[in-house]
Amino acid sequence: MFEAIAFYLFAALTIGMFTITVMTSQALYALTAMASGMIFISAFFFMLGADFLGVVQIIVYTGAVMALYAFGMMFFDTTRTLVEKQNNPRIIFVLGVMAATLIVFILVSPIISTNLEARYPIEAAVGNSQAIGLVLFTKFLVPFELAAVMLLVAMIAGIVLAGKKMDKSLTLMAEEEIALMSATQAPKDTEEEGAH
């Protein structure tokens, strides 16, 4: 009984949160609703007995959405509503509906044909994190390593992009030096660097 109550509660909460994320025009509402939606999803993992995945869901998505907040802070005034520029709402609508129908079809078809079964069911003797480790390093080693390599590529690319002027610290420089640096660089790139 408790499981059913918890399931419907968290299902309603998750759907509600993601509806807000999509519908609102306020950046802060959208981000907060998305963060809470992601955290509410972890409840389903806990109910299914996958404690490790549930906790990982919380850890990964709090951090990931936090990075989105940082972007939100950089690009918008988050206390104002955002007016989106939409040239052709019809295309957005058609594409959105098509994508949503497709996803529902993909997810529901194995359930309807009752092909859905746990190929690596939870064993009581093996702990949760051990079970995941076993499956990851035996059955799914190639995708796991590929994901690791892709993340490494992204990380190195990020460092290369961001690390151009890492040897200079604006905090430790005198005001004249900063002025000189921004004066020499102003024609080259129009970024607002060193502008106080």
Binding site: L28, T32, A35, I39, D51, F52, V55, V56, I58, I59, T62, G63, M66, Y69, G72, M73, T78, T79, G127, N128, S129
Partner: peptide, 25 residues
């Protein structure tokens, strides 16, 4: 829960949303 320490740290980490949201709002 058998992932106790991870759970504790994960939920404590959500707590930092308080200052973040408070500051941004």
């Amino acid at each position: 829960v058998n992932v106790g320490i991870l759970y504790v740290l994960a939920v404590m980490a959500i707590g930092l949303y308080g200052p973040l949201l408070g500051g941004m709002a």
